[in-house]
Structure formats: structure tokens, C-alpha cells
């Protein structure tokens, strides 16, 4: 039996390629996107599909608080799809990286391979779950829940294949960056004004032993 998600590579310009731009000059760090995501997707306690990392830096009076909203990057070359042993991690033709609950066995290999750590084990289902750009909303012509809820319009969602869309204009006219471009995953979530201090890891990270 062949894999049901064995996809023909999408190159057609008529198909949309969904992407997101996060404008950090507008982000106020209110965490509304987190909550909207949890409500929309029924995400259990303790885990997040999208979250905002928040750091304080500098010395008084020269201080700043920086934010980095994080979600699945829906990469063009996703590491998780390559490593999944059963083909449960797959990519739609419009670029959304999905998890098929009928195939996923919860082996967690994709969690180790994802450079952005956006995947989690759903405690009730025992399967892997992650941000899917609210694909049911997108298919119905709506925007993802986090984009809809953002009070500062810091998250902009749209079709990257359409040169007239807001995301295409921002990506082509602003200086944008993606997370960890050195991983070769080619993310489709772009950041404007990302503070690289939010990407730092700490030498003495807190060790939390798994129960």
C-alpha cells in the first residue's frame, strides 16, 4: 500500500502558498494570539501551538522588552516530513504542514527533528499535534485565529504566490528574516524587526526531568 499523502510537488502558480509575516514593530506582547489559538484548536493545558517568547534586556534606564511569537513555520523543506517513519507528517499542496491522525503513531521522531520545537504530544490522544494555520478556517476563506485576534495587526496572513497580497508586498519590500535559515528548512513565516536576543539559548538551561 502506498502512502496516501505521496504528493506531487506543487509548483503551479495558480495554487495558493500560505505564509505569514509577523511585524514585531507592532507586536505589544499581549499573548492574545496564544489564547485565540488555544480556544480555536482546543489545545490542552500545558502545551501551546503558538506562543510568545518574551525577554527583557539592557540596564535601567536603557531597557527593552522583546517578543518573539512562535508558531509552525510551514517550511518549504520541512525536516519533520522527511523523518516521519509512517508518512503522517505531510505537506498540503498549498504548503501547510499537517499531521494525519490516522497515520501518526506518536513516535516523537518529528519532535526531535524540528529545529523550532513547535511539535508536541497531545496528552489525551498520544499523537503529535502542532499549528496547522487553522486549515479549516483557511479553507473556508477565513484567516487563522491568531491573525484574526491580534489587536495590533502584527500578524499578517496571506497567499505568497499572489504578488498583490499583503504578505507578498511586505516580504518583497521590507527587510524580513526567518528563524534559523541555516537549517535549510526554508520557512514561510517571516519576521520584521526580530530581536536576535530572543533566539538566545542559555548555558545553564533549567533541567526538567520528564515524569
Amino acid at each position: 500500500m502506498s502512502n496516501p499523502h505521496k504528493k506531487e510537488q506543487h509548483t503551479g502558480k495558480d495554487l495558493p502558498r500560505w505564509g505569514m509575516v509577523i511585524d514585531l514593530d507592532r507586536c505589544v506582547g499581549c499573548h492574545t494570539c496564544e489564547i485565540a489559538c488555544k480556544m480555536e484548536n482546543d489545545v490542552p493545558l500545558g502545551i501551546w501551538r503558538s506562543w510568545v517568547k518574551e525577554i527583557e534586556k539592557g540596564k535601567y534606564p536603557n531597557v527593552v522588552r522583546s517578543f518573539r511569537p512562535t508558531l509552525c513555520n510551514h517550511c518549504e523543506n520541512p525536516a519533520c516530513v522527511k523523518v516521519c517513519p509512517v508518512g503522517a507528517a505531510w505537506q498540503r499542496e498549498d504548503g501547510i504542514v499537517m499531521v494525519d491522525p490516522h497515520l501518526c503513531v506518536g513516535c516523537r521522531y518529528c519532535m526531535s527533528a524540528c529545529p523550532y520545537e513547535v511539535r508536541y504530544v497531545h496528552p489525551q490522544k498520544g499523537m503529535i499535534d502542532k499549528c496547522d494555520f487553522c486549515h479549516t478556517r483557511v479553507d473556508a476563506g477565513l484567516k487563522p485565529s491568531c491573525v484574526e485576534a491580534c489587536p495590533a495587526s502584527a500578524r499578517i496572513f496571506g497567499n505568497l504566490n499572489d504578488p498583490k497580497s499583503d504578505v507578498s508586498k511586505l516580504v518583497s519590500t521590507k527587510s524580513v528574516t526567518t528563524l534559523k535559515p541555516e537549517m535549510g528548512t526554508d520557512p514561510r513565516v517571516y519576521y520584521i524587526g526580530l530581536d536576535m536576543a530572543t533566539m538566545e539559548i542559555k548555558r545553564e538551561a533549567k533541567l526538567v526531568w520528564e515524569k
Partner: peptide, 12 residues
């Protein structure tokens, strides 16, 4: 910098 809010990651 100090981390005011951080998300606890799952160990895979």
C-alpha cells in the same frame, strides 16, 4: 537578558 516568560518544552 533574563527570561521573564518561557515555554516549557516537552522532551521527545
Amino acid at each position: 537578558g533574563k527570561v521573564v516568560f518561557d515555554v516549557q518544552y516537552q522532551t521527545s
